[in-house]
Amino acid sequence: MSKISVTGLRKSFGSNEVLKGLDVEILEGEVVCVIGPSGSGKSTFLRCLNKLDELSAGTVIVDGFNLGDKTVDLNEVRQHIGMVFQHFNLFPHMTVLQNIMLAPVELKKESTADARTTALKLLDRVGLADKATARPAQLSGGQKQRVAIARSLAVNPDIMLFDEATSALDPEMVGEVLQVIRDLAAEGMTMVVVTHEMGFAREVADRVIFMADGVIVEEGTPAELFGNPQQARTQDFLSKVL
């Protein structure tokens, strides 16, 4: 069953067309990694999936919700899609626990007590049970990103979007974050992962999409795309990053 269905997606900032007609189907439980050079539109693509950016043309259907439909409650849809940012975007004025509890409590999904229990469980799951009362400023980059993942999971999404979740991290912390994403994949979460970690993409992805200049140049299984790329631009890109 298709969890995310994108057809003819275009996005322009002023006269600058950044996405030039994307067609993507993502199935339930599928892990799709998106790779490509900087500026090719990967982030913009992700942001169109939860409408942090307005669509210029085309349709995006997520979990059955047509995002182009004005009557669709975006706040409702967004609770189905967790998003993890390159720069974490934790709320600095709240503790780790408050960061995670904010959405469930404000959205009245859970009582404060239940939200607290859930938050502590999520923290345990990302290996940070002891950091509940810490402030974001007291955490390392890897810890921050794991809290951010726990925060996204707190509203119980069935799709997760990762936008270069490890790019801002020191190398020794990349592993701990990738491990959390790997675990989520193993649990069957539907995920779109924009990444520069080719090894990780090869290992975890069901499918890899290579984007350049706002178009999908090539896609396939990791074995196909990494092992036998068909397009010159893909080969060129991979030769630089591998």
């Binding site: 706040n75 899609i81 975007n89 959405a103 959205l107 951010a148 925060r151 996204s152």
Partner: peptide, 20 residues
Amino acid sequence: GQTEAGRSLGLGYVTTMRRV
């Protein structure tokens, strides 16, 4: 990024303003 984080969690404009 703070607003985006709030909105991506499904919080409305007013809630995001008020709490974040």
